[in-house]
C-alpha cells in the first residue's frame, strides 16, 4: 500500500515530541553528559571518556549492590507470582465476595510507597511496633535494625504484602475471561484439578502473567523508597541496592560522574533483562 506523505502531520506530533524531549531525552542526555566528564563545580568540565564506567564496573561496591538487587528480585518473583496465582484461583467468581475481595486486594496498591515504608518501619520496631513486640514476646529474636537477615525478611514481606495484589488482580482478570464451557468440558473429560490448571487456566493466564512478571521484575529491581525508609540501606550495606547506592553517590558524596555512569549502566541492565525476559517468553509462545 502506498503511504501518502503529509508533512503537516509532523506539526501535529511536535507538541508531544517537545514534551518527551524535555521530560525524558534531555535529562537522559544530561546524565550521559555527566557520565563522560569530570567537574569540580563552577560549570567547568573536563573530558573523562569512559573512566567513570571503568571505575564503576571494577568497583566491588557496584557488584555487591547488583547482586543484592538480583537476589531480591529473584526472591520477590519466586514468591509473588505463585502466591498471586494461588490467591487468584481461590478468589470467588461471583456474588458479594467479588467486590469485597477486589477492594481488599487493591488497598495495598493505593498506599503511597513511602507510607508503606513508614508503616512497616513502625510495625517492625521492637520497642513500639506490633510485629516487633509480638515476635519478641514469642521469644523470637527479631531486630531489623541490627540483623541483616531480619532486615531482608522485613523488606521481602513488605514487598509481598504491597505488590502480590497486582499479580492477583492481573491473574484474576485472566481467569474470569475463561468461559464456563471449558470447566464443564474438563469435568466431562475427567480432568483432575491439576490438569484443569495446567491445560486451561495457566494457558489463559499466560499473557497477563507475562505482564505481571515484567512489571514485578522492573519494579523490584528499581526498588528505592521502601528500603530507604525502613532500613536506609543498612544494617551496614546489607540492604543497599543499586538505587540506594546511586543516591548516596550522587547526593551524599556529590560524585556526579560515577553516579551518572552508574545510572546509565543501571538503566541498560533493566532494559536488557526486560528485553530478554520478554523475548524468551513470547518466542516460547510463538513456537507452538
Amino acid at each position: 500500500m502506498e503511504k501518502t506523505w503529509n508533512n503537516k502531520a509532523w506539526f501535529m506530533v511536535l507538541p508531544v515530541l517537545v514534551l518527551v524531549a524535555f521530560s525524558a531525552v534531555i535529562p537522559l542526555m544530561t546524565v550521559v553528559n555527566y557520565s563522560v566528564q569530570d567537574t569540580f563545580g563552577n560549570n567547568e568540565f573536563f573530558w573523562a571518556g569512559t573512566d567513570w564506567y571503568v571505575d564503576v564496573l571494577t568497583s566491588d561496591r557496584f557488584w555487591d549492590a547488583l547482586t543484592r538487587n538480583l537476589i531480591f528480585s529473584a526472591i520477590i518473583l519466586a514468591i509473588e507470582i505463585p502466591l498471586g496465582i494461588i490467591i487468584a484461583l481461590n478468589m470467588p467468581k461471583k456474588g458479594l465476595g467479588v467486590p469485597v475481595c477486589l477492594v481488599l486486594m487493591a488497598l495495598p496498591l493505593l498506599i503511597p510507597w513511602n507510607v508503606v515504608g513508614t508503616i512497616w518501619q513502625v510495625f517492625g520496631r521492637v520497642d513500639i511496633g506490633l510485629l516487633g513486640r509480638t515476635l519478641e514476646a514469642l521469644g523470637i529474636n527479631y531486630n531489623y535494625v541490627q540483623n541483616p537477615i531480619d532486615a531482608w525478611v522485613t523488606l521481602i514481606v513488605m514487598d509481598v504484602w504491597h505488590w502480590t495484589s497486582l499479580v492477583v488482580l492481573l491473574c484474576y482478570a485472566g481467569l474470569v475471561s475463561i468461559p464456563d464451557a471449558y470447566y464443564q468440558a474438563a469435568k466431562i473429560d475427567g480432568a483432575s484439578r491439576w490438569s484443569v490448571f495446567r491445560y486451561i487456566q495457566l494457558p489463559k493466564m499466560k499473557r497477563v502473567l507475562l505482564i505481571a512478571f515484567l512489571l514485578r521484575f522492573m519494579d523490584s529491581f528499581m526498588i528505592y523508597t521502601e528500603p530507604f525508609v525502613v532500613t536506609g540501606g543498612g544494617p551496614g550495606n546489607s540492604t543497599t541496592f543499586l538505587s540506594i547506592d546511586l543516591v548516596k553517590m550522587a547526593i551524599g558524596q556529590f560524585d556526579l560522574g560515577p553516579a551518572a555512569a552508574l545510572s546509565i549502566i543501571y538503566f541498560l541492565i533493566i532494559l536488557l533483562l526486560s528485553w530478554i525476559f520478554y523475548t524468551v517468553m513470547t518466542t516460547s509462545d510463538a513456537q507452538s
Binding site: 471449558y182 464443564q184 468440558a185 466431562i188
Partner: peptide
C-alpha cells in the same frame, strides 16, 4: 461416564 459436546469448541490450546 457421559460425553458432551458444547456449542462453542472447547479445545486445550497448548496440546
Amino acid at each position: 461416564n457421559i460425553a458432551q459436546v458444547f456449542q462453542f469448541p472447547v479445545i486445550y490450546d497448548t496440546m
